[in-house]
Amino acid sequence: MKGENYLYLYCLWVLGDYKRKGYGSSLLAYCINDAKAKGKSGICMLGAQKQKSWLSDQTFVKKNGFKTVDKTNNGYELLALSFDESTPYFPEKVKNPTIENKELTIYYSMQCPFVFNTIKKIKQYCTENNIPHSLYHIDTLQKAKELPCVFNNWAVFYKGIFETVNLLDIKYLERILKK
């Protein structure tokens, strides 16, 4: 995402008994006020043409003024609430994500608590089964900005083609490797 003066909203969730009590609205209002107080141009977040279970509820943020400002060729959207009429956007390279490396390639960060164990299992499986793989830990903002995809927490490529941003269990990994 390009939008140097935008605050990126990574996760906004309210679950279980806490839903529909105004907590989500309070959290979003806090984010908006914080971004304005810090002189940001606005707030943006990742969405999709069809809601994904692991993405924050885009219907909720659209009701609060967010608009789709850019799209990829594989169904992802950039949602933004602008305070100054500027517009963030996706770099061209992420709109049709491919890479030169043909082996199993995973870009990951430790933003999600489930990533550590998933990486550990994938390393073990690939080593035991002699599967060539490359794992790239995204631990700086610069590395995140250079990614060939829209999601900087987890992205899987195989044979140079973007496969998924969903965490893998071994059965899912095996399905990808059979392609």
Results as ranks from 00 to 15, higher is better:
residue 79 L to G: 05
residue 79 L to E: 01
residue 79 L to V: 05
residue 81 L to M: 12
residue 81 L to N: 02
residue 82 S to H: 06
residue 82 S to E: 07
residue 82 S to I: 07
residue 83 F to M: 14
residue 85 E to H: 15
residue 86 S to Y: 09
residue 86 S to H: 06
residue 87 T to L: 04
residue 88 P to W: 00
residue 88 P to T: 07
residue 88 P to L: 09
residue 91 P to C: 05
residue 91 P to H: 05
residue 92 E to Y: 00
residue 93 K to Y: 11
residue 93 K to M: 13
residue 93 K to H: 13
residue 94 V to Y: 00
residue 95 K to V: 04
residue 96 N to Y: 07
residue 96 N to K: 12
residue 96 N to S: 12
residue 96 N to P: 02
residue 97 P to V: 07
residue 97 P to Y: 06
residue 98 T to N: 12
residue 98 T to Y: 12
residue 98 T to I: 15
residue 98 T to A: 14
residue 98 T to G: 11
residue 99 I to A: 03
residue 99 I to T: 11
residue 99 I to R: 04
residue 99 I to V: 15
residue 99 I to C: 11
residue 99 I to K: 03
residue 100 E to D: 14
residue 100 E to Y: 10
residue 100 E to F: 10
residue 101 N to D: 14
residue 101 N to S: 14
residue 103 E to P: 02
residue 103 E to H: 11
residue 104 L to Q: 06
residue 104 L to R: 05
residue 105 T to N: 06
residue 105 T to K: 02
residue 105 T to H: 06
residue 106 I to S: 02
residue 106 I to T: 03
residue 106 I to P: 01
residue 106 I to A: 05
residue 106 I to L: 10
residue 107 Y to E: 04
residue 108 Y to W: 00
residue 109 S to P: 08
residue 109 S to I: 09
residue 110 M to Q: 09
residue 110 M to P: 04
residue 110 M to N: 13
residue 111 Q to S: 10
residue 112 C to F: 06
residue 112 C to G: 08
residue 112 C to Y: 06
residue 113 P to L: 13
residue 114 F to M: 13
residue 115 V to M: 04
residue 115 V to I: 13
residue 115 V to A: 11
residue 116 F to Y: 15
residue 116 F to N: 09
residue 117 N to Y: 12
residue 117 N to G: 13
residue 118 T to E: 07
residue 118 T to A: 14
residue 119 I to C: 00
residue 119 I to G: 03
residue 119 I to K: 02
residue 120 K to Q: 13
residue 121 K to R: 09
residue 122 I to V: 15
residue 122 I to C: 01
residue 122 I to G: 02
residue 122 I to P: 00
residue 122 I to D: 01
residue 123 K to T: 14
residue 123 K to F: 07
residue 124 Q to C: 08
residue 124 Q to S: 11
residue 125 Y to M: 05
residue 125 Y to T: 00
residue 125 Y to E: 05
residue 126 C to V: 01
residue 127 T to W: 07
residue 127 T to C: 12
residue 127 T to H: 14
residue 128 E to R: 06
residue 129 N to K: 11
residue 129 N to C: 08
